[in-house]
């Protein structure tokens, strides 16, 4: 069990007029090889939660355990933790800084104190894993396209060989093609490299197509945690929080309301298509 989050609270600006409870009694665990989605409104605490997972923020109460060890314990190697729990932020512009892409990707593993050869090997593998070709290795990261920058940023974290990879809004601002690319990289990292992936996203349709488990944050609390399919069956509750269900699920539940006998626990376009056809055929 790589990560256990045990009843954590986090309060911003305690004791001032700006005091705000960002996290309130949040508990859950992440198992090896899971593919998890994390959703919630802006300000629901999901980004704050992500920052706790690799120790960039510390809980005011409660504890976080990585591989069974309390990360707040004396002498805990934070740098090593950041290598194990990789966090990729929304804007790649916030991390790209070297003269060329390859050197930039080397930054992470170099910070881990690895040998040069190992650093470069890891950078090479990471760049390959995100689909950046050799001829793009030595261009300036600032000359990359939007989608390439995201991929380079992911590679920069991937090169530290994390067990858990948290991607914060990796598709924001990209065109449909770019989104598809990033999501299929996330799939690959999970399926082929066995990395535990946590995907923070606003797009319920994307989450429905990709993740197996869903965590829903609302006002600093973890209000839902379960298999994606089951979480999306709570349409009313989600809509009350200002969140949506995937369009395909919404169509099915509307159809059921109109009297067509369809299952409503299906969430992807493909599933909805098959279910509608089945329901229509069985009607005759």
């Amino acid at each position: 069990m790589p990560i256990l989050v045990n009843h954590i609270d986090h309060i911003y600006n305690p004791g001032t007029v700006f005091e705000k409870k960002a996290l309130s009694d949040v508990s859950f665990s992440i198992e090896d090889g899971e593919y998890i989605g994390l959703v919630g409104h802006t300000g629901s605490g999901k980004s704050t939660l992500a920052l706790h997972l690799n120790g960039l923020m510390k809980p005011d109460s409660g504890g976080i355990y990585f591989d069974g060890v309390d990360i707040a314990s004396e002498g805990y190697d934070m740098k090593a933790l950041r290598g194990k729990v990789g966090l990729v932020f929304q804007y790649p512009e916030h991390q790209l800084f070297e003269e060329d892409v390859f050197t930039d990707v080397c930054f992470g593993p170099k910070n881990l104190g690895l040998e040069r050869q190992e650093v470069e090997l890891r950078a090479y593998e990471a760049l390959k894993a995100v689909g950046i070709e050799d001829d793009r290795f030595y261009v300036s990261p600032f000359d990359l396209s939007g989608g390439e920058k995201r991929r380079a940023a992911i590679a920069g974290v991937l090169a530290m060989k994390p067990k858990v990879l948290v991607l914060d809004e990796p598709c924001a601002g990209l065109d449909p093609h770019g989104r598809e690319e990033i999501l299929s990289i996330a799939d690959d990292l999970h399926d082929s490299l066995g990395i535990t992936v946590v995907l923070i996203s606003h797009s319920m349709d994307d989450l429905a197509e990709h993740v197996d488990r869903l965590l829903v944050m609302h006002n600093g609390q973890l209000v839902m945690d379960g298999p994606t399919r089951e979480v999306f069956m709570n349409r009313k509750e989600l809509e009350a929080m200002g969140l949506a269900v995937p369009e395909a699920a919404a169509v099915l539940s509307d159809l059921k309301g109109m009297g067509l006998p369809v299952r409503t626990d299906l969430i992807t376009v493909e599933e909805a298509k098959n279910e509608i056809i089945r329901a229509l055929r069985s009607r005759f």
Partner: peptide
């Protein structure tokens, strides 16, 4: 053209 259609339209 590297674009898609809305999910409902796609379905």
């Amino acid at each position: 053209n590297s674009l898609t259609v809305p999910v409902v339209t796609k379905l």
